[in-house]
């Protein structure tokens, strides 16, 4: 590598660092900008050139958010939604993945292909039938209504099957069976501990996608008391005269927890998302 690294200042190197730094700054700028706006009165928005330094309205703007929406209630709803869906998806996917990887049962391959096919079907095709299904069950405006149809996650089943086929030998399962262990016991005592790393991967994928999902939550939840944070934030922009300071304050406080979690676990995050995409 010496021939590249030896020249201290080459044109291509400056270009490279310049391009990457510009990309980083452009990626970070909207985050910084929402913070600036969250600390400024709405009137600051009219100044030319635009204000680029934080002001002192951080608390006031957030109080205005609290007058518009039940911010903490909505954050709580989103959190419950994500936690429940993530746990259930992990359990169902690993059980189903285990069955597909290690058991023989009639119609196994057809069923597996059918599940993979539902991955390709866009969710919009299911939107209307699922809406009426939820309405019939009396689950409109409830978190159960939002979560219940996302428990079966084709990507999850697929990833788990791949992981279990690759990491657990048939001999191990056979040996456990000879010792008289039930299928569930094998799952609980042998499979589960081995697939914990895959749980982290799938867990992050499911949690972030449920957290950010909008169309379905927007369709099922009409009652402001049941809003998740995405629907609540969107409702802030639904007036003719929007208070930008208030709006950005809501977005800022809803985004900052995610940013902190991401920065703490960034390697795991990036690896999970890449793995989820590349494996599928």
């Amino acid at each position: 590598m010496k021939e590249v690294g030896s020249k201290k200042f080459s044109f291509s190197k400056i270009l490279m660092y310049g391009f990457l730094t510009l990309a980083s700054l452009l990626s970070l700028f909207p985050f910084y900008w929402m913070f600036v706006m969250a600390t400024r009165p709405s009137a600051a928005y009219n100044s030319i050139p635009p204000t680029l330094t934080p002001g002192n309205m951080l608390v006031e703007n957030f109080q205005k958010v609290l007058q518009q929406i039940d911010f903490f209630g909505a954050m709580w709803n989103s959190l419950i939604l994500c936690v429940v869906v993530t746990i259930v998806v992990l359990l169902i996917s690993s059980l189903a993945g285990f069955a597909f990887a290690k058991f023989k049962f009639p119609g196994k391959n057809i069923l597996f292909i059918a599940i993979l096919l539902t991955m390709i079907i866009p969710p919009q095709l299911g939107l209307i039938p699922q809406y009426f299904l939820i309405a019939k069950a009396g689950l409109l405006d409830t978190l159960q209504g939002v979560m219940i149809l996302s428990f079966l996650n084709p990507l999850g089943i697929f990833l788990m099957r791949q992981y279990i086929s690759g990491s657990i030998s048939d001999e191990l399962i056979e040996a456990a069976k000879l010792d008289g262990a039930s299928n569930f016991k094998i799952y609980w005592k042998i499979v589960l501990p081995i697939i914990l790393p895959a749980f982290a991967t799938l867990g992050i994928i499911v949690f972030t996608s449920v957290w950010g999902e909008f169309l379905w939550q927007f369709t099922v939840l009409r009652d402001p008391e049941m809003y998740t944070i995405q629907v609540a934030l969107a409702s802030l922009n639904n007036t003719f005269k929007v208070d930008y300071g208030m709006l950005m304050s809501g977005v800022f406080w809803a985004t900052i927890p995610l940013v902190i979690i991401f920065l703490l676990f960034n390697k795991l995050f990036i690896a999970s998302i890449t793995e989820g995409a590349v494996k599928s």
Partner: peptide, 11 residues
């Protein structure tokens, strides 16, 4: 930093 926008929700 380049990956960070992905974690923000579309809303």
């Amino acid at each position: 930093t380049i990956f960070m926008p992905y974690i923000t929700s579309m809303v």
